[in-house]
Amino acid sequence: MDLSTFIQQLLNGISLGGLYALIAIGYTMVYGILRLINFAHGDVFMLATYFAYYLVGIYMLPWWLGITLAVLLAALVGMSIDRVAYRPLRNAPRISALITAVGVSFLLENGGIVVLGARPKGFPRPEIMGKVYTLAGASIIGVSVWVPVLTLLILAALLFIVYRTKIGAAMRAVSTDMETTRLMGVDIDRVISFTFALGSALAAAGGIMWAFKFPQINPLMGILPGWKAFTAAVVGGIGNIIGAMLGGLVIGIVEIMIVAFLPWLSGYKDAFVFIILIAFLLFKPTGFLGEPLKEKV
């Protein structure tokens, strides 16, 4: 295996990992605040691709407008899920909210099958993503260039929101100590709504770029990426945003490398993600950057 192939695969891995990172951030932010695994997150990712498919592919909106609307709609869906399904259960036993989360996820998947159709749909691709660039003799398709660049820009914007704005400070405060933050006069429900909107918007962006990379969408496409992204969040340290980015990259790179270097195991690539999850839970349950969760008595 020569160096250029390795670098090529590494770039592929980073590009895929960036998408996992975008989804993982939504999981990790919600878990950090509510200690809730938002099972429906992967399905918001799926819905966003359908929004974009209908807005751009069927209603012929220009790309920039279609994508913006799709991301906003997905954010709205994320907020509504929290409002309808999770907020009434804030004070219930934790298992109740988890069960509702599974119910919402299943509703979106099966609703998707009935309303949108189970058959995969071909996702349109903007010209710039299909363009072939020639760089130092190697030719690279637009997707492989623009997806990582866009991912980086989005992640930078996210870090700005979380660490440099007032609402970001409120989010971090709520995840550190909800009760104290409430006493400081912060509207907790608004912060949680914003967190859901932000996480869903990121997943939506990830979903649309995912569809650029793998231009076939179906109602169940969110399940495995969603689960891998959650694994990425655990690997990075659950509750930690930068950790989720790191974890996403690790999962993406491992997955691509297995397909590239051990092609006879490519059918089992999902199983390796599971092994990574089990290994981390066994040997480093706090992940790369996480802190042990404090037990509140």
Partner: peptide, 13 residues
């Protein structure tokens, strides 16, 4: 499955 998932959510709520 849609009926069942709505049922589960309503039960929980």
């Amino acid at each position: 499955m849609i009926v069942f998932s709505i049922m589960l959510i309503l039960l929980m709520l």
